[in-house]
Computed example of a mutant assay.
Amino acid sequence: MNKLIYIILLFAVFFAACNKKPKPIVDQQNKAYYTCSMHPQVHEDHDGNCPICGMKLIRVELTDAASANTITLNATQLLLAGIQTDTIREENTGIEKTLSGTVTTNENTSAEFSARLPGRVQQLFVRAVGEKVTIGQPVYSLYSEDLQEAEKEYLLAKQQQKVLHNPDIDYNQLISAAENKLKLWGLSVSQIKSLAATQKVAATTTILSNVTGTVSDIAVHEGDYVTEGMTVLKTQGLNNLWVEAQLYASEAENYKENALVNVSFPDLGGQIIKGKVEFINPELSEASKVDLIRISIPNPQGLIRPGMQAYIALSGGNNRSLAVSASAILTNSNGSVVWVKNTNGSFSPRMIKTGAGNQNYLPILSGVSAGDVVVTIGAYLLNSEAIFKKGSDQMDGMKM
Rank of each mutant, 00 (worst) to 15 (best):
G48Q: 10
V126H: 05
K389F: 02
K289H: 15
Y6S: 08
T134H: 11
L187N: 07
L292T: 13
S315R: 13
V126K: 04
A65E: 11
W185L: 11
Q199F: 02
P363G: 07
C36S: 09
G357V: 04
A370C: 00
K3E: 13
A379R: 02
G237M: 08
P298V: 06
V338R: 03
K399M: 11
G355Q: 08
L78K: 15
N262P: 00
S176C: 00
H165N: 15
A379G: 11
L247R: 05
I192V: 13
I364S: 08
Q246D: 08
R305K: 15
P349M: 07
C36G: 06
D47H: 07
S366D: 13
E385T: 09
A249F: 01
K56W: 00
G275L: 06
G119T: 05
L57P: 01
H39M: 09
S327K: 15
L142A: 03
Q394W: 02
K56A: 12
L80E: 09
N332Q: 11
A323S: 14
G213S: 08
I5A: 14
Y311P: 01
E222W: 00
R305Y: 04
H39K: 08
A252K: 09
G357L: 07
N166G: 03
L195N: 08
V290A: 12
I7V: 13
Q28V: 04
V243W: 06
E61L: 13
A326R: 14
M38L: 12
F347R: 02
I297K: 03
V243N: 09
N74W: 09
E90M: 05
I58E: 14
V243S: 10
D224E: 10
L268N: 05
L9S: 13
A310W: 05
K353E: 13
A111G: 15
T204I: 04
Y154K: 02
T102P: 00
K152S: 12
T85P: 04
T206M: 12
K193D: 14
K31F: 03
A66W: 00
G345Y: 09
S333F: 04
A386S: 14
T235Q: 03
S67H: 12
W339Y: 15
Q301L: 11
L182A: 07
G345C: 12
F14K: 04
Y6L: 12
V368L: 10
L62R: 15
A203Y: 10
V13Q: 05
I207K: 00
W339C: 06
I377C: 01
K158D: 11
G371F: 08
L124H: 04
S392P: 00
K399N: 13
Q137S: 09
E151D: 05
S346N: 06
A370P: 00
F347I: 05
N19V: 10
K56Y: 02
V340N: 04
G397H: 05
L260C: 01
I135Y: 02
K183C: 02
S346V: 06
L147N: 03
N92Q: 14
T87F: 03
Q236S: 14
N210L: 07
N92F: 09
A310F: 06
L57T: 04
Q160L: 14
N318G: 03
T235N: 02
G357K: 04
S333Y: 05
P40A: 03
F265M: 06
I312W: 05
N358K: 11
V277A: 12
E278H: 12
T63Y: 07
E222Q: 15
V368Y: 03
S190A: 15
K20H: 10
N166H: 10
A370Y: 00
G275S: 11
S114Y: 03
